[in-house]
Amino acid sequence: MASRTLQSRFSLGRFVVFAALAFAVCFYGIPLLWLFMAGTRSEASLFSDTPFTIGSWAAFSQTWTNLTSYNNFQIGTWAANSAIYSVGGVLLSLVASIPGGYALALSEFPGRKLILIMTMIAMITPSTAVVLPIFLEMNLLGLNNTYAGLILASGFFPFGVYLAYVYFSTSLPKGVMDSARVDGCNRFELFTRIALPLARPIVALVAFFSFLAIWSNYFLAFVLLSDDKLYNLPVGLTALVSGSGALSNLPANDVPIKKPEVILAAIIVVLPVLLIFIVAQRFVRSGTLSGAEKG
């Protein structure tokens, strides 16, 4: 019995699956691990020591000072800008996509199918393809190079509408909605009092994907923003790299931004995404429908 169990544990199929998974973890995880470790090392250490050497507190502290003193803590301004664009854009995308998806899932109205198809088309269209028309539109509205301009453009999130549509059309218990109608809810109250509290997982998911898209958006911000005080982190990071020549073989200059500073800046770009993911996934997995219906 015991030997049979052992035999099944060490089957070839399981070995192949685990080997493939281990390879994937290493392949995708090692660069991220290297990034976080490299942030603690000096430039000399980056070249001379083995790849996974942990640096010193002194080296990290020096890198941090160099980075924050660059252009009067400009990276702080860019991080704040990124936060403003992300919060504004996420709120706007939620306000548009959650009720939009709900209406598409639960209402019958003329043009519903057309809107669904348009949403799908918008979803699969590469965002870079619409950057130029958005630039022209913002230019016409005088919103280029403003917070409002980038927030408005970022709030367009058809994937969120689609996610909400799929969630509401498949996961909303019909009995609960019927019960609420009998209890006295009108259409608006059905959404706000019943459907929305049940939709916390999808709100978290849409917010996360929207945040991810806006936080790491380079091209749209690059096109719409020309004032470096309004840059977000991705554009700022590029400006930092190109302005300092940290990653090129330019002759030595006085700018204290070298490879460790760029690495630390990259960590600052990545870290919020990781933190938000940890918070959002708790909501996504919370299973708020538990107990609504039989079972």
Partner: peptide, 9 residues
Amino acid sequence: FQSYALYPT
């Protein structure tokens, strides 16, 4: 309702 249809939240 057959499914109870309680409000889970």
